[in-house]
Design a protein around this nucleic acid. Structure first.
Lengths: 144, 144
DNA sequence: TCGTTTTCTTGACTTAGTCGTGTTTTTGGG
DNA sequence: CCCAAAAACACGACTAAGTCAAGAAAACGA
């Protein structure tokens, strides 16, 4: 499986005008399976695959990939930034107040959803960031 | 003006079961005029009114007031937390990518807006946090 | 006014990153 | 295939925005 995937990851990088390095490929591979992971978690998984990579390299790569549109960064309040490889559909997120679990939600309002607020106060809006806060199924048992 | 307002702020605090202190009253007074301000900005304004107050006291008071539902905290990605006194209507926010300016938006979808995502994945949702990202009128001049 | 409880102060600590500087890798051209 | 330029990475110092802990001060009910 990994041959095809590595090829795809490399192509993705080249297509975005980025150099192909083992760290970046490993990041993309990891995010194929792990979703909504923090930079530290990515670092751990990447190191499992390719040995030592500095934390700063992880940050820089994640920033580069995010800027290139290959990854999407979400930053729920009170949580470190999380990354996912599902991009381009501007879906939203459910976040559990208790355990921090994150789930994807498709938008209710169409394909470029919620992008237009009722009155935009003169702002030129290009993205809507929607987070639904609540309790995930596992945390609904109501224990203090 | 300030007599009535101080009374009101004190009543608000007492009504929420919180002790009335000069720092808390000053915070509420400031947030009557200043909106979407950071903890540091609040600290500055509060100190103008009542002299020395420690930064930690500001943080603790803001947390207490937020927990009590008297203030609302918003935390746009890449910005420190901001506070506002407009609570209870679950309105949303426009944030400028360039200068960080924040503006209020009423919700388009009704009075308990966007609270229900299309599919909630079993989550018990109690709040929707919507941030529209874009450029404010002042930053639309397109200067690099 | 007194005592309890909450709040405030001071200061150390933590987390999640950014900023430089110098050293490796990639990679396209010869 | 080799080599220079550009990009990426390593290492370490630094920063912002808070939290945590222990003792002093202020609120408020009796």
């Amino acid at each position: 499986m990994s041959v095809t995937e590595k090829a795809t990851s490399a192509e993705q990088l080249r297509g975005a005008g980025l150099r192909v390095t083992s760290a970046r490929v490993a990041i993309l591979e990891c995010l194929r399976f792990a979703r909504h992971v923090t930079a530290e978690e990515v670092a751990g998984k990447v190191r499992e695959r390719v040995g030592h990579v500095s934390t700063q390299a992880i940050y820089e790569a994640l920033n580069a990939l995010t800027d290139a549109g290959i990854l999407r960064r979400i930053e729920p309040a009170g949580s470190p930034a999380r990354y996912e490889s599902r991009v381009g559909d501007n879906h939203h997120h459910l976040v559990c107040r208790q355990c921090g679990a994150v789930a994807d939600v498709d938008c209710a309002v169409g394909h470029a959803p919620c992008l237009e607020p009722a009155a935009n106060a003169g702002f030129q809006v290009d993205e809507a960031d929607v987070i639904y806060w609540g309790l995930c199924p596992d945390c609904q048992g109501g224990h203090p």
